[in-house]
């Protein structure tokens, strides 16, 4: 059962949002949708994985990441 997990990620430029996207792409089909908003520094991830697992991955980018909430699809 997938959920939409919402995070804020300290992204300052397009390169940063691409890096976040690439890190999430590595999760392959476990992630079905990624919506990144650079202005709001928000990242919405639709996935069957838990928010903790995704938080771990996002932290690898070296950027400040905060978990906001999850909601059912």
């Amino acid at each position: 059962m997938s959920q939409v997990h919402v995070f804020t990620v300290e992204m300052t430029c397009e390169g940063c949002s691409n890096a976040v996207k690439r890190v999430l792409d590595k999760l392959g089909d476990q992630v079905t949708d990624v919506d990144i908003n650079l202005n709001e520094k928000s990242v919405h991830v639709t996935s069957s994985l838990s928010s903790d697992e995704i938080l771990e991955k996002l932290k690898k980018t070296g950027k400040e990441v905060k978990y906001i909430k999850s909601s059912d699809v």
Binding site: C13, G15, C16, A19, K63
Partner: peptide, 11 residues
């Protein structure tokens, strides 16, 4: 994939 200095400092 680096586009600006914040990516450089980050790495």
């Amino acid at each position: 994939g680096m586009t600006c200095n914040s990516c450089v400092r980050n790495i």
